[in-house]
């Protein structure tokens, strides 16, 4: 428990900053919706002049933009982009930080098993992500209701909003996995940005060219809001794939961490 509490203290500022930033995507863009709702026919005319690939790449199902959930899911993508960076950073850094900051000698020489260290740390990261999601959920729910008069489909809203948490879990696991591959991670930011934008670009391509195969390679597609709205459910194939990625990544991380030689100071 003491490691968990310590980790939560270390994450405190970061949780506040990320919760604000991710919620801000909704705060900033939702205000545009009433205007969008009124002028949707003009918008459609305008957007239809854009190249088809461009429209698809940004996941703009034009008619959907005129509905609350459609518009919400459009801006939600940017919330998941930020959320992924947050989760990736946490995953990459939570175990590797001890070696990078040279505190591994302090922690491991205490009477505590590595098993307990890794579990406490991963639980702390999941809790941090969960707190961010609770803040995000409350903010989005209030904002979406404030800016629309129409009836919000609560079930779909919850399904879409919850997917932030699931995508973050996938990115956290990938981050943990990557952190266990090299002997020592020197810098967290460039790797997190690189990996997350890499997956995001794959997502843009897969949407633009309607390439179904590419979708498997980007967690951003595993919980596609457009699919959720159309089918009223998650795509189970991708849900299983997401679970698979999480299990394999965490398994590998656990195996490696238990056997790892802590880098010499």
């Amino acid at each position: 428990m003491n490691i968990f509490i310590h980790e939560m203290k270390m994450h405190r500022n970061s949780i506040v900053i990320w919760s604000i930033s991710i919620s801000a995507t909704i705060l900033l863009f939702i205000g545009v919706f009433p205007a969008m709702e009124k002028n949707i026919s003009n918008m459609v005319l305008m957007i239809e002049n854009f190249p088809k690939e461009f429209i698809k790449a940004f996941n703009v199902e034009i008619m959907l933009l005129g509905t609350v959930l459609g518009f919400y899911s459009f801006i939600f993508i940017y919330a998941t982009l930020l959320g992924s960076i947050q989760a990736m950073r946490y995953g990459l850094s939570v175990l590797s930080i001890e070696e990078r900051e040279k505190t591994a000698d302090f922690l491991i020489s205490k009477p505590v098993s590595r098993n307990k260290i890794i579990i406490s740390k991963i639980l702390a990261v999941i809790t941090s992500i969960l707190i961010t999601n609770i803040v995000f959920f409350i903010v989005s729910y209030l904002m979406v209701n404030k800016f629309t008069d129409s009836n919000l489909d609560n079930r779909l809203f919850v399904m879409i909003t919850l997917s932030l948490f699931f995508i973050q879990l996938v990115f956290m696991s990938i981050g943990l996995l990557i952190s266990m591959i090299p002997r020592k991670i020197k810098a967290v930011t460039p790797i997190s940005m690189g990996v997350v934008f890499g997956f995001f670009i794959i997502q843009l391509f897969s949407s633009a060219f309607e390439d179904k195969k590419l979708e498997y390679f980007t967690p951003f597609k595993y919980f596609d809001p457009e699919y959720i709205i159309k089918n009223q459910s998650y795509n189970m194939t991708y849900v299983l794939l997401a679970i698979g990625v999480v299990i394999v990544s965490l398994g590998f991380t656990y195996y490696r961490y238990m056997k790892k030689d802590m880098a010499q100071i």
């Binding site: 310590h6 000698d105 020489s109 100071i265």
Partner: peptide
């Protein structure tokens, strides 16, 4: 056991 590492760096 009490251990003092050769170089000490502690949490930020």
């Amino acid at each position: 056991i009490g251990y003092l590492p050769s170089e000490v760096f502690y949490y930020e």
